[in-house]
Design a protein around this nucleic acid. Structure first.
Length: 86
DNA sequence: TAGTTGACCGGAA
DNA sequence: ATTCCGGCCAACT
């Protein structure tokens, strides 16, 4: 088994977040192997446009929603509402 | 190798 | 509640 990059691990973790659930960037970073890399995790998602990755389910640890590259914060909130996460 | 760039975080004011 | 700041980190130049 080859060595997976942090980026790959992050995408895999986010890909498993179920409908109606949310995870913080800190949690995602921790599950991906580096609890202190929340910022890096965010940067990775900012560049991901694959609809299969439910990155709208990742929020900030202070409870605020955070950004979204497919419609902005507004769209992110709408999606989470529709999914019952809020 | 070194410098730059952010969908972040936690504490301080 | 809000803004500011320093710290942190992987990816990309």
């Amino acid at each position: 088994m080859g060595m997976a990059s942090f980026k790959e691990r992050v995408l895999r973790v986010v890909g498993k977040i179920k409908t109606g659930e949310t995870r913080t960037y800190v949690e995602v970073a921790r599950l991906a192997g580096n609890p202190r890399a929340a910022r890096a995790a965010g940067s990775i998602m900012a560049k991901n446009f694959d609809p299969k990755i439910p990155c709208h389910r990742v929020t900030r640890s202070d409870g605020s929603i955070g950004a979204y590259n497919r419609g902005g914060t507004r769209a992110k909130i709408k999606l989470l509402r529709k999914e019952g996460a809020i």
